[in-house]
Structure formats: C-alpha cells, structure tokens
Design a binder for these strands. Sequence first.
DNA 1: GCGACAG
DNA 2: ATCTTGTCGC
Length: 217
Amino acid sequence: MIAFPGPPATVAEAEAVQERLRPLADLDDPGPDDVEFVAGLDVAYRSDDELTAAVVVLDARTLEIADQAVVTGHAMFPYVPGLFAFRELPPLLDALDKLTVRPELLVCDGYGVAHPRRFGLACHLGVLTDLPCVGVGKTSFIGRNDPPAPARGAWAPILDGDEVIGRALRTRDDVKPVYVSQGHRMSLDNACRHILDLTPSFRLPEPIRQADRLSRR
DNA sequence: GCGACAG
DNA sequence: ATCTTGTCGC
C-alpha cells in the first residue's frame, strides 16, 4: 500500500498530482474473471467536513458480508468537481487498512477514467492499493451517452468526443443506468460483467449499497 | 463569455 | 453529499 501524501495545498497542486499518477493506472490488464472477495467503498458526510468512510467486503458468489470497516474523520480538501478523491481517499485508505479479509476487487462510487484528467477516484484508489478497481457513478459527469435500451444488461458507451471513457449500464429494467468506468487493472467489458453479477436486485451494486448503508450509521 | 460540474 | 412530504408502484 502506497501511503497517501498530505492533502494538496491548492487546486493546481491537486491537478498536478492526478497528472503525475495517471500513467500508473493500468487500463490494459483485463483483470480477473472471478474473484472471491469484493469490496464496496463509500463515504457519508455528517456536516461540512465531518465524514464517515465505510468499506464492506462481500463474498462475490453469495454476496454475503465477509468483513467491514468504518473510519470517521475530517475532510482535508474542499469539494471540487474532478478533485473529490482528495476528500475521500484518506479515510477510505484507513478503512481498507482495518480489513481482515483482503478483497481482490474494489468497487467505488464515483468515476475512474471518465474524468476530466482521466484519473478519477477509482483510478486513484486502484493505483494506491494496486488492486483491480472499478468506478460506478450514479449521475453523469464527463462525456455524453445515448440512453441504453430499457432492459437490464443493456448499455451505451460514454463518449468524450471520439473517445470511449465508460458505459452507461442498465442494472435494472426501466431504471436509470449507472455509469461504469475503468479504474485500474480491469477492462471495461470485464468491469461491466462484474458489476452486473454484483447487482442482482437493486440499481446499485451490492458492495456499494452495503458500504453506503454502513457509512450512514 | 456563460453554464455545467462524481460525492 | 445533505436538507425533506407525499406519492406512485411492486
């Protein structure tokens, strides 16, 4: 695990960190076909800067909880679209360190390469842990996409100009899609396959739902 | 120049 | 993210 350096002092510095780390994200590794344990990560905000980070490890086959960890802390960086990893990363890394069961795949809320500098939270988290990592956003951020067909499993590419940066993936019939993008060591195809497997009942993947639930307690 | 803008 | 009532649908 690479230690998280102190928070950047300025927006420009934070952007420079992303530019510097971007080449370290592995977008060519297709990633594992199967994993035993998957972790979902989420952060809830209590007030302006008090936050609670939660990580829940699930058995990827049964989707039962195998381990979990919570960390409360204070945001050391303001919320700036494109830079919110600098708010959530420190407590999330602390929570990951508290785990007993080691996940082989990370699923985090927010984006990976579908980001202004192609280095969203999922990339940052993946690079620092060197674990396969996928980003799942709940709302659109960067790029444009046609609405996918209404059936679960349907998807449409998220395009930034000619570049495919992710997929709008329908995880439930007739429910708005989630936005999947590569973080680290996992292809977009494989990522979407895993996300569908991890989303049997609700709109959001089970690891994220559980982490969200845990973070608000 | 003016909005839009993950959580 | 969070502040929040009722309401539609399975």
